[in-house]
């Protein structure tokens, strides 16, 4: 392994000062970075270890859930707040790697990796999450949708640090579901991953708000807005969900690679979107509970 300097700042300001030095790279959980280091894909002069920063928390205040960027997926799975209010995120955390990966990998790291298959991205997209970014000029809040700018490319400027993920507590009559298709049950990169959220009106039929997001079927994790518009404002039904699922499959841009062909990804996306929406619908009407 090539050599590098190593620092362990204890405040975000210190971390940003270090990250502004040339050749510095942030070290979160390390489950991607250490592999890339060994393979020579990256060669930073300095690693800035973020583990001593106070960025490991799940808090809820004023209807906003705040998750520190260094919170591990094991901690997300253990969080009562996430399991109750953002069940779709907990479902995705359970699908990431295996126990060892989840004890190391962090939510902030997964988002910053900006890989198209990042499992935590579709759930956070359907919850309209925002990311808080700190830099030498202060902090800014960016909608997660704008954070992914290309394959493995995020919206961070040099020297910036993602410090917090925020999502609003969903309204009543909301259901959500994350589904992942992989080649095996553990340690698997998604062939397709899908999240859907439905919020119904007081009549328990009209779709007040809907979000559908997919991963591994486009250069970035992305929403399926045409599919959302099929449902938005209409009375939810099986046939409408069917149409929305077809619309989602039409608007994605999957590629063929060693894990699956584009055709298989498109058809799998249709099926997963349909299943996720159906489950979200049942959950929104109270027929099923989170994590059923």
């Amino acid at each position: 392994m090539p050599s590098f300097e190593y620092s362990t700042p204890t405040t975000v300001d210190q971390a940003i000062a270090l990250l502004n030095q040339s050749g510095a790279s942030a070290l979160a959980g390390g489950t991607d970075l250490l592999i890339h280091l060994r393979a020579g894909i990256v060669a930073p002069k300095q690693l800035v270890d973020l583990s001593a920063l106070d960025l490991n928390y799940v808090r809820k205040d004023d209807g906003i859930i705040r998750i520190g960027a260094m919170t591990t997926f094991a901690e997300i799975l253990d969080s009562d707040v996430v399991r109750r209010d953002l069940p779709c995120l907990a479902e995705s955390a359970a699908e990431i790697g295996a126990v060892q990966t989840r004890n190391m990998a962090t939510l902030g790291g997964n988002l910053c990796s900006a890989v198209p298959s990042a499992d935590s991205a579709p759930p956070l997209l359907v919850y309209d999450a925002r990311v808080k970014i700190a830099g030498s000029d202060g902090e800014r809040l960016v909608p997660l949708e704008q954070f992914f700018v290309g394959p493995k490319k995020n919206a961070l400027k040099p020297g910036e640090l993602l410090i917090e993920i925020q999502a609003s507590v969903p309204l009543p009559r909301t259901g959500a579901r994350f589904l992942k298709l992989g080649r095996r049950k553990a340690m698997s990169l998604a062939v397709v991953n899908v999240a859907a959220r439905l919020t119904l009106g007081q009549d328990h039929r009209r779709v007040e708000n809907v979000r559908i997001a997919l991963g591994a079927v486009a250069p970035t994790p992305r929403r399926a807005k045409r599919a959302e518009s099929v449902l938005q404002g209409s009375d939810v039904s099986e046939s409408l969900i069917d149409r929305a699922a077809r619309a989602a499959a039409d608007e994605i841009a999957p590629i063929s690679d060693l894990r699956a062909t584009a055709t298989f990804r498109r058809e799998s996306s249709r099926v997963l979107v349909k299943r996720a929406l159906t489950h979200a619908w049942q959950m929104a009407t109270g027929e099923t509970k989170p994590n059923d």
Binding site: G30, L34, I35, D49, V99, Q100, T101, N103, M104, M187
Partner: peptide, 27 residues
């Protein structure tokens, strides 16, 4: 494997299983 896939290097860190091949000793 040295890439966090196989689990042969699993140790317990504060009671939790982690892959020691993906962890700088400094950490």
């Amino acid at each position: 494997c040295g890439t966090g896939e196989c689990g042969a290097c699993t140790i317990l860190l504060d009671g939790k299983p982690v892959n020691s091949c993906l962890m700088p000793a400094l950490r």
